[in-house]
Simulated scan of single mutants.
Amino acid sequence: MAESSLVNKLFTVNSLNKLVFEHDTRTFSQAIQEIGGAMVGQTNLDAIRHLYAYMSKKHRNEYFYKNALLNKILLGRHSMNTTSALRELPVAGNILDFLIINGVGQVYEIKTELDNLKRLRQQVSTYYQAFSFCNVVTDESHLAEVQKILDFPQVGIILLTKRNTLHVVRNSEMYNEGLKHETLFKLLRKPEFERVLLRCCGQLPQTSQGRYYRACLAQFKGLDILEAQGAVLRELKQRAAENKKYAEPFARVPVELMELVYFSGYRQADFAELEDFLVQQVGEA
């Protein structure tokens, strides 16, 4: 459906940046024309809210789910001062949809009504190699099948209801038996695993450049697995800490755009430019 394709394309970091900073309104204007109808005299914020409302009723895509998680869990239950989020994190050949770190790491694997469930069990098993708490967030149309596939009780199941609320069907429980040093280690960038080794071991391996990575991994494997996991979570949380610098202007971002802005690395001037764009009338240069 053309309208669905347009909202998929519009609600991305790249599209928002083009719209706000490059004044490239092609996708935005087309979406308004196809979905919004006549919006003469209304603001760009009005148009975005109208398009988002269409998405909430007709096409709840992955962005809609991620935005719900950010708004209702990270911002609704926790605080940007104490909690961080990461998205699309590579984990042992899979891409983890959403991770919230608040003392522990809570994985959220998203299965929208538009997705199939063929790889679900394998994906969750992989995430348990690095994280102790996993949840699947899904739609009513998938709920019974998700419950059947995830017949092990430690996996949390969350339903995005028709009213767009998050309903916990089953709470996640701690499960550490699947943790693997190598999977944890591979989540880290070089400066991150070097900090972990210096902090936990007091030194880095003295070896040739060609053997350095494997030597660092071997040293990391000497750590207790829960100590290793805690050190990795600390680094991942720090990776997302840039988002906390501008909590005050971020609080003024419309709910519909929170997830996009959170992961865009905005600076003070960027927030001001976004605000200027949102108050302009549709079609205003």
Rank of each mutant, 00 (worst) to 15 (best):
E3L: 09
E3G: 08
L6H: 04
T12R: 02
N14C: 10
S15A: 15
L19S: 01
R26T: 14
T27I: 15
S29K: 02
S29Q: 11
I32Y: 01
A38W: 12
A38N: 15
G41Q: 04
Q42W: 06
N44A: 06
R49E: 04
M55T: 05
K58G: 06
F64K: 01
K66C: 02
K66S: 04
A68D: 06
A68G: 06
G76I: 07
N81Y: 14
L86S: 03
E88Q: 14
L99Q: 04
G103F: 02
K111P: 06
K111V: 02
K118V: 13
R121W: 12
R121N: 13
S125E: 14
T126G: 01
P153T: 07
P153Q: 10
L160G: 06
H167F: 12
V169M: 11
Y175I: 05
G178K: 13
K186N: 15
L197C: 02
L198D: 08
C200S: 10
S208C: 09
G210C: 13
G210Y: 14
G210E: 14
I225C: 05
L226V: 09
Q229W: 01
A240Y: 04
N243C: 13
P249D: 05
R252S: 05
P254N: 02
V255M: 12
E259F: 02
E259N: 13
V261C: 07
F263K: 05
G265R: 07
Y266H: 11
R267K: 15
A272S: 15
A272H: 13
Q280D: 03
G283I: 00
A285G: 07
